[in-house]
Design a protein around this nucleic acid. Structure first.
Lengths: 232, 232
DNA sequence: TATTCTTATATGTATAGACATAATTAAGCC
DNA sequence: GGCTTAATTATGTCTATACATATAAGAATA
């Protein structure tokens, strides 16, 4: 049929085409690996790789013994890169600037502990800072760092380096939760971002863990002009 | 060393651990597949699979002949599921309701054509509708559908089914671009979402293409209470 | 009928061996 | 030196084979 030489890419794309063009309808059972291998003149392992990729992409659903079927509710996923603010700004050709507002070791308030699922009021590093692009406020960062899991943060110098940049080099994470939302700027946020109180802001919140232990909570506030773009 | 039986999972996790625990530092060259295969008592193909997964996750960077090294700037990516609004609302145990506001066939304004990279003012279907959760406005949708690429939309009945639901079943897409931002509610948006004009809203914009041809532009407006959450 | 056990089967994974491909390094040449 | 070309090498992919594992479906049982 397909006169191309067998390759998992060729096979993957051809199967993908059949699904997109509705040759195989959602929910339908598609031929088994053995049959496809014969059709494409390839080894079963090659077909398997193609099928696994499509399954990972959410286009197919596979179950042992039951076979492979076209996903009924194709849960399409998109990826977005976790921004590293300096690179993000410099990649646009803008000048990056960083300004530390405060850095204190203190007991975290209830709200913060609750967000991090911490029972006791742990000792934490609280950092507030501002990131600017071409001398214009780009992001206000309000961050809590768990000193129990990242004791090194106690002696870190956040005057020259943002907490994110420091953490990337000193505290890897295994899990993260991202929340995005819109809100009205508080008086503090407004004055820092040079906007008016009540103006809309784009907020990203990020919590990271290492092996179940919370590392940090970052509350990142952007002016409404901010765009978060991603492709599929 | 690791007394476990070889498996690409075991190997992947062990390598991942070495990177997380900084046994191998960012930028460092790690042993070749052959060497790792010997260390783990596995075949090279098995090690290859483990390494490829880590490379796909952005933890490793691989180059032919040059070898594999720990990513210097681990471009961590997070995935988010492209929400299907009915399922999203019903999954929370809320009642989903849909209300069509308007559906017209018209020439798209310049702004819309520009967003879709269309030169001429194409004939388009313009649909405006509202999605409610437990009788409270959840999302206002303002959508343009390219009738040149999806002629079937001309006869679709958007009174009972939202355009997204219809498109999922009738127009697959190969590419998509997502933009998220915060903005102030326009008078129209405010009255539809039952909020005040100027209140912050969370906006998602989605453009989809099939084989290079633009299919649709969706402008989705949520009240500020909306949260977009994703995990890594 | 309902429950448990058995079996058949499609996918999941591992392996050794082979060849393909990209990219670095070294050799040859002007 | 600076250029082109060839050799080297680590990763990329394919194959044939084998065995593992989940599970649907049928058989046996209560």
């Amino acid at each position: 049929m397909t006169s191309e030489r067998a390759s998992f890419r060729t096979i993957r794309d051809e199967l993908s085409r059949r699904i997109a063009e509705r040759v195989w309808l959602p929910g339908a059972l598609i031929p088994g690996e053995e049959a496809l291998a014969e059709e494409f003149g390839a080894a079963r392992a090659t077909v398997n790789r193609a099928l696994q990729e499509l399954a990972r992409a959410g286009i197919l659903e596979r179950k042992r013994r039951a076979g492979t079927r076209v996903a009924l509710h194709p849960v399409r996923e998109a990826r977005f890169v976790i921004p590293r603010i300096r690179q993000e700004i410099e990649a646009r050709g803008s000048e990056y600037q960083y300004r530390l507002l405060s850095a204190d070791i203190t007991d975290a308030p209830e709200v913060i502990c609750a967000r991090l699922s911490l029972l006791s009021r742990s000792n934490m590093m609280h950092v507030r800072c501002l990131h600017l692009a071409d001398r214009v406020p780009y992001q206000y960062e309000d961050r809590w760092i768990n000193l129990n899991t990242v004791p090194g943060a106690r002696d870190a110098d956040f005057a020259t380096m943002g907490p994110n940049e420091w953490l990337v080099g000193h505290a890897p994470f295994s899990n993260a939760e991202f929340t995005f939302m819109a809100a009205a700027a508080s008086p503090d946020e407004a004055s820092l971002l040079q906007i008016r109180e009540g103006d809309p802001v784009f907020i990203g919140e990020r919590i990271t863990w290492m092996a179940g232990e919370p590392i940090t909570l970052a509350h990142l506030v952007h002016p409404a002009s901010h765009r978060m773009v991603t492709h599929l």
